[in-house]
Design a protein around this nucleic acid. Sequence first.
DNA 1: TTGAAAGCGATACCAA
DNA 2: TTGGTATCGCTTTCAA
Lengths: 343, 343
Amino acid sequence: MDKQNKNNKVSLSQVARAAGVSKMTASRVLRDEGGYSEQTRIKVMAQVDALGYLPNRLATVFAGDQSSTFIGVSIPDLGNEVFAQVLEGIDRKLGTFGYQSVLGLTQHTLNEEENWIRTVLSWQPAGLILTGRYHSPRATEMLRNAGIPVVEIWDLNSSPLDMSVGINHFDCGFDMGRYLTNLGYRNLGYVGTSHDTANAATERLNGFCKAVEGAGGQVVKQLCLHDTATYYPGFYGTEQLLAAARGVECIYYQNDAMAFGGLQYCTGKGLKVPDDIGIAGWGDLPIASVMKRRMTSCHVSHLKLGQKAAEVMMGRLTDEPVPACVDIGFRLIPGSTVRDRSA
Amino acid sequence: MDKQNKNNKVSLSQVARAAGVSKMTASRVLRDEGGYSEQTRIKVMAQVDALGYLPNRLATVFAGDQSSTFIGVSIPDLGNEVFAQVLEGIDRKLGTFGYQSVLGLTQHTLNEEENWIRTVLSWQPAGLILTGRYHSPRATEMLRNAGIPVVEIWDLNSSPLDMSVGINHFDCGFDMGRYLTNLGYRNLGYVGTSHDTANAATERLNGFCKAVEGAGGQVVKQLCLHDTATYYPGFYGTEQLLAAARGVECIYYQNDAMAFGGLQYCTGKGLKVPDDIGIAGWGDLPIASVMKRRMTSCHVSHLKLGQKAAEVMMGRLTDEPVPACVDIGFRLIPGSTVRDRSA
DNA sequence: TTGAAAGCGATACCAA
DNA sequence: TTGGTATCGCTTTCAA
């Protein structure tokens, strides 16, 4: 009976002993460090296979001054398809570098985020990717003290904690507001969701209102539901909005999923889109690719946003020069759920 | 200048020294273990705050025989909305227990899964939640040797490695096949995706074929695309299927997203649903909640599946008795994208 | 080319 | 109520 450690796992010393070398030599072989004979290498590797040795990376990080391959990734929620895409982009890209995402779903609250940051930092991650630019004071302090790279994504942040990858949401909203008012729309509505934190969707709404008001129009009703920004809230939000406000010619939604819900509500009620009412969304979700009536929206490559975030993180970790801010950009999609009313 | 460790992070001994106690005492205070005076507690906590001490959990795991709070979670991809929901259910539930998901997107390949398992095991996770019941031989061996709880989700597995939470996909397909043939459909088509591994979707197809053939019908064409199971592949897959096979009366899709894509293709081509052609999906995605024509589908609570997986994992970790198999169940949704043809 | 010893940050165990 | 010492699995450093 060979001595086993408490976890009943095979350790490096066991491999070394079985191979008849010191654990330092075994360590060198496993790290491919060089400085040993081919014969030694073979002996060690044979025992690695025979014993099914798996290194304990916790001990490695702990012993050396290298960092872990964890990247903490905070995401508000996955019910919103755009965030799922962002996460997919992040994790895939990190994976190509041999890094792993440690997930945190913050439910859009700074308090959840703070708690998660405290926990995840205790696991010595190599870096953090956080959705959103707003953090609690304590979270901010911990982030500063952590001494690891931090990428804030989603909202572009011109003065980030460390690095920022995102888009200008105000501009998205502004461009849509200008586009719609140029088409002749004057009485507009908005349906979205709200949380306890000022967020990107609010920025879009702000930009939208600014453009609409600047063009002599008005946002007659803004509905911010306490719900997830997906199909059904778009549906019932539209019902509420149309019941509460008269004369709304076009509705701007927080995203395409809500807009699609709204579209279904309107057509179900016999309203013709875009003749009776206009519909505009944001995000250009995959579902748009199969709709015969292209949704008026704003295209953003969520996957690319995630990939880029992972890239700047890896760039920083490998001491390459990386930009502090990366603007992913967006593109307005005219679509056919709105029409020219100025004619 | 106080001595700092290499990471420039505050360690327990620094807190202890600053508070004028031994690190054992400081350790006890921080773990709320009792066996110290209130005065001591106050001194220590004051220094924790002053120095901004964050524990290094790596060292804790390493020292004691407690395990980490990592749960490795493998998911095929997040472009498929159902998996995003499963992950959301898992991570939220784990979070309530103070555990974190370490994500692995395997892209539906056993090889990716094996590599990810090797890496994640080296971080000493408390347990693993894996999507799918098929693993490479080496992966299986590592899982057996790891000595940690493993929950296989998605396909119900009556003889799991350890524990299983899922549904019977064969039955889903079978029930749908029987339902459609009972309505009078005889010539059916299938559109889905395929990967290098036998998967749950294939099980559904098998069940479907079995029921259809048992009822004297036939699945005249099965299309398995090498793509992600989402809207657009459903759209173009339908085009391919209808071009390749004549007389298809109803198409069964891998999931609702693909079915929605197919529905859009059909209506776009002037085919009336369900008069000219029937459409059936699987999964009952959120988008179904806003469609005026309810999709004929199969309801599965993906969120609950994820939550349940996390629950049995936590049950095992806290030494509660847990069932080896949990069947989440499903419910056929008649919908209105198919019709009674036997009349 | 190889090995022995120290140490990473925490906890368990025993002694005071 | 406290503190000293050994220890976890590995790497760094220095010596042979």
